[in-house]
Design a protein around this nucleic acid. Structure first.
Lengths: 340, 340
DNA sequence: TTAACGATTGACAGCGCTGTCATTATTTAA
DNA sequence: TTAAATAATGACAGCGCTGTCAATCGTTAA
């Protein structure tokens, strides 16, 4: 049968409370005692019972991941990263897929948080970018860690894991320029997403730093979808248009895939007549043909990092809300921007 | 504060044990008493505490979903379906992504099952198609429900949710024939997946029923990937080949997308010169251009059904392992097989 | 050397629920 | 009508752990 705290206590020759102290890293345990206990823990392969802990203690050992994201690959990666951290730290994960645009979404999540007694929440866009939502969670005394786009935290509400989309976009744009392009179009994702805004900033900055004149006509508004890419290329490359871009910066791989597809349809050769870059390094980017130059975000690592941060907050109670960790996606050059 | 069983008991004027009986649907509770209790439950918005239940009882209120699937959309859909059932029934879900090909995968899952004390497991391919694995789980006295491909359960080990890929494939093939095709190629997915085998059977049967001679040359082995579709079309439509298919049955949308892409590259017009069908109704099929004719599997519904089945098994203890539910994916005709 | 102090440790109650078994209410048979 | 049988209910222990507080230990300062 599974070993309990009693078995460990007996084996180590101490009281159960001391075992409890050791496994919870509480102070006031002599070094020698700690070692005895740890030895017994290993010998019996003891793992504390989560239910008992949750029931007995005031603190909880569960965290939640609340998300609303059409990108299944992103969600899966993030889940796995969080799960890795949870396993390591003996925490439990409650996943809560939902619709961020639903009317009483905040109440719904509040109910779930109370019900599951989660001690903390990992938030990704769009939730991480909804201050009211975040505040509502904090008001419940739930710790929060946000993963979001930008190079510094927008506020001190919670620790943040920032994804530096701006610099990554700068790097991609610079790459496009380096391989000889001057007329670079920008295919935007959803305008309300921070990531679109940040990527746009990086694009603009790269143009500026290279003394390339910005041309509003080359910026096509859109959303994070395949169709958006298709439509944009149809507009940009329309025969009747006198000036065409020689390269396209797409806000994500899906848009890029659409752009690629439309270009093919129009008999535009990639990358000779038109270079196309993506963003995200999704399976999409490897399945496209030619393969897409893109930027890789290590979503699993980012999520694991976020979850570890969250768990240490939950553990220590004392939160360091100024804590920020920055990730910059890295350029992956593939065939869609360089001659094969 | 959250209401406990004590509050409900007080409010209803009964003992906590009676409340327990009511919420667990145990027999031997007078109708009137039950109603009193239920009223109090509603009034106080009482939800039993999972930790306490797990701790006190011999039965557990958690189930697990063990999976290894590169198709993120499938996984997400399945998760959501299971979650719906769990919420309704007051169960907790442990997700366990892992690598089915890892050496000690069975041991790994056994550890997780013991650790989390899950009472049951929802299994999808490939796990649902691994008899040794399933038996190992059953040996732990863990209930299992399998989602798998076929028209009847391969054994009586567990209840099964069968996805009738064969009939669906038959319907797709019949559709291809109906719109005038005779030379229909078959692009296989991974040969070891039951779904590939079943889809192949349906394809063969449709040909036979329509007195169309089967041609081995039109069957291309492959895997469930974009590249596989690309390669297949390059082979099938090679100019030097004297006979080309006029339609392609692809084992899933990803293969179909690859086929579509390759065909475009070769300046083959779709669907005029070549009709292409997919399978799965993934986002892929809607993003392709022209949109793919495909077969829709209601993965969320299937998973919800599986989870409900599992939970009722867990609840009743008595398992009806002969129980089988059959879903047949339905044909969705889009532009890739019918002139626009 | 000893009182006094802080550092360690343990005893014990109780988290919210279920399982067991005793008790009481109700029905049935005689 | 009453005893026996059955149905309905409740009292209580205890699941594995943590929080509280009291007991013990070692150490320092006088």
């Amino acid at each position: 049968m599974k070993a309990t705290i009693n078995d460990v206590a007996k084996q180590a020759g101490v009281s159960i409370k001391t075992v409890s102290r050791v496994i919870n890293n509480e102070p006031s345990v002599r070094k020698a005692t700690q070692e005895k206990v740890l030895l017994a823990v290993t010998a019996l392969n003891y793992k504390p019972n989560l239910s008992a802990r949750n029931l007995a203690g005031t603190k909880s050992f569960s965290i939640g991941y609340v998300y609303c994201n059409p990108n299944a690959y992103y969600v899966i990666d993030t889940q796995e990263g969080i799960l890795t951290a949870c396993k390591e730290q003996g925490f439990e994960l409650f996943i809560h897929p939902c619709d961020a645009k639903k009317e009483h979404i905040t109440d719904e999540v509040i109910t779930m948080v109370k019900q599951a007694r989660v001690a903390g929440l990992v938030l990704t866009p769009p939730f991480s970018e909804m201050p009211d939502f975040v505040n509502a969670m904090l008001a419940l005394d739930v710790k929060v860690v946000r993963i979001m786009s930008g190079d510094e935290a927008p506020d001190q509400l919670t620790p943040c894991i920032m994804v530096n989309d701006r610099d990554a976009a700068y790097t991609i744009t610079q790459h496009l320029i380096d391989v000889g392009h001057q007329r670079i179009a920008f295919l935007a994702g959803d305008a309300e997403h921070m990531s679109t805004i940040e990527r746009y900033k990086g694009y603009r900055k790269a143009l500026k730093d290279n003394n390339i004149e910005f041309n509003q006509e080359l910026v096509i508004e859109g959303e994070y979808s395949f169709d958006s890419g298709v439509d944009a290329v149809k507009i940009l490359m329309a025969p009747e248009k006198d000036i065409h871009p020689s390269a396209i910066f797409s806000c994500n791989d899906e848009i890029a895939a659409g752009a690629l597809f439309a270009a093919r349809l129009m008999n535009i050769s990639i990358p000779e007549q038109l270079a196309i870059s993506g963003f995200e390094n999704s399976p999409f980017s490897r399945q496209a043909w030619p393969k897409l130059t893109t930027a890789n975000q290590p979503n699993r690592k980012i999520a694991e990092n976020a979850a570890n941060l969250l768990i240490s907050q939950v553990r220590n109670q004392k939160a360091n809300n100024a804590l920020t960790k920055l990730y910059t996606p890295e350029l992956i050059v593939r065939d869609s921007t360089t001659s094969i």
